[in-house]
Design a protein around this nucleic acid. Structure first.
Lengths: 180, 180
DNA sequence: CTGCAATAGTTTCGACTCGCTACTAATTAA
DNA sequence: TTAATTAGTAGCGAGTCGAAACTATTGCAG
């Protein structure tokens, strides 16, 4: 078998093993992936559309999943005042707690040495970037690596949205992120 | 965010993009993963139990998925004569064709240079091994890397099952594989 | 200003996954 | 020969998934 196919197979198998863990508690893999994204996204990137695009699914499907998460008490929902069509989700305390739970992949990574782990991280990042470029998908990168970002003494500033950013926010995922 | 969590996130996102891209037509991710495994497994490793264990799911769930694949014409089913409880699946021509279709991850890997690709392959392999060791899962490795394997002029021989192996079979996945 | 297109999100549908429990049939152990 | 184990399947309920239809809001061209 070609090496490329092996890599694809490894990727899928690891994701599956990780997903199997997800049922711990009352979250299924899709729900956990959504919660996982929302825990890391900034305030401009927490709508159903954004989660759907990040996880490569439809708005309809994601709407269902998010509804389930709200019902189970992991998320709270807030309608925007600026644009009354827009909805934004925030993690409840229960949601915060769930995302910090350790999992099997994190355990496995403990066995890798620092250098190997760095290589793996770089390899996956490069691969994702290349896949996204070919499929036209957005990168959903970290705020402070964006060409619209300006560093300030306290946090930063987004030149695209003309909004000040807290220190924490500069480290979150943004749906508008475009590498500098 | 910690690097380990980023790696987990990258893994899941890549697997999701791969699943979304879909193959030729009417296969969902679970069905494709099963077909993908069966295309690479040897004749001792093609039962519902084996696929279920490889993909970390239950026999019941996998039974359903395999039934769907048979109905759609991707697999054919055969009962064993030795042990009448055992079922073994083989890919039809349609099934063979489906597995050879290119996909988005393979495309993305084209952009990585040879060295980076090798690093990525090694990193994922090590990670999987470590995860499996901790969870008690089987490795499902390649036949000729097994401690029960003996090389012969034409193919090889399995000392565990006392069976001669063709050249092709020595390169397939085996559920009994145990590294030398 | 008005009417129409675009956008954000939801609902419903049918096929399917998933873990679970309960079941049948075949095989193996006591 | 009976009892335990193993392989596989059936049915249940919750939920995913894509697709299409639908509501509400916003933006835009005339």
């Amino acid at each position: 078998m070609k090496q490329t196919e092996q890599i694809r197979s490894l990727l899928n198998r690891l994701a599956r093993l990780d997903a199997g863990e997800g049922w711990a508690g009352d979250l299924n893999p899709a729900q956990r992936d959504a919660l996982d994204y929302l825990a890391r996204a900034n305030r401009f990137s927490r709508s159903p559309s954004h989660v759907a695009e990040y996880l490569d699914t439809t708005r309809g499907t994601m709407s269902q999943t998010l509804k389930a998460l709200v019902r189970k008490g992991y998320l709270s929902e807030k309608r925007s005042i600026m644009d009354k069509r827009v909805v934004s989700f925030t993690l409840t305390d229960q949601g915060q707690k769930a995302t910090s739970d350790i999992n099997i992949i994190n355990h496995g990574l403990d066995d890798l040495n620092v250098s190997d782990r760095k290589d793996l991280h770089k390899g996956l990042t490069d691969l994702l970037e290349s896949v996204l470029k070919k499929s036209g998908g957005k990168t959903f990168g970290i705020c402070h690596t964006c060409r619209h970002f300006s560093k300030e003494s306290q946090g930063g500033f987004c030149n695209l949205l003309s909004e000040p950013l807290t220190e924490l926010e500069t480290k979150q995922i943004c749906h508008e992120q475009d590498s500098a």
